[in-house]
């Protein structure tokens, strides 16, 4: 499944870029992310409790950052597996300056397997959109906060 969209964040591009590549911030922004530990260069082990309504699943997996060209582009690759199946996806983030704000264009592929693939068909698109919107809402809050308190307090 393709996921794409644009999102404007009210912070300068380099600020947004550093937030987007900061594991502490990512952990707080990714809905349900309970742990994100660095295990290599741009490689993190993740624990995710994701879901909507009564439907919940725990996923364990990896997050990898690739193709990093600060402050305009990077790719995030996520793979997770849990009792309800697996999810993996990658998304390219392109950041554009936009009058002091930053326009994020994201475009990615999400693939799911296992039980959630076989029964969640009609919900998957909505769930992905909801995760994305929660992610960006949290990110906006993070960049506002870090803009306010300065780079040093990241993490």
């Amino acid at each position: 499944m393709k996921i794409e969209g644009t999102q404007e964040l009210h912070a300068p591009r380099d600020r947004v870029y550093s937030a987007l590549t900061n594991p502490g911030i990512l952990q707080r922004c990714i809905p349900g992310c309970e742990a994100l530990e660095k295990i290599g260069e741009n490689l993190f082990a993740a624990m995710l409790k994701a879901g909507v309504g009564a439907i919940k699943g725990t996923f364990k997996g990896e997050v990898r950052l690739e193709d990093m060209r600060p402050p305009e582009h990077y790719r995030i690759v996520v793979e997770g597996k849990g009792g309800v199946g697996f999810a993996k996806g990658s998304a390219d983030f392109d950041l554009e300056e936009n009058d002091g704000a930053t326009l994020i264009k994201y475009s990615g592929e999400l693939q799911i397997g296992g039980t959630i693939a076989g029964v969640g068909q009609r919900m998957i698109q909505g769930a992905a959109k909801m995760m994305a919107s929660r992610f960006f809402a949290a990110l906006e809050a993070e960049v506002q906060r870090t803009t306010a308190i300065g780079e040093a307090d990241l993490v």
């Binding site: 693939q111 296992g114 039980t115 693939a117 076989g118 068909q121 009609r122």
Partner: peptide, 14 residues
């Protein structure tokens, strides 16, 4: 089956 071979009509809901 989707392009990854996942069975997306796995229940009588679909």
């Amino acid at each position: 089956y989707d392009e990854q071979g996942q069975l997306v009509t796995g229940e009588l809901m679909d």
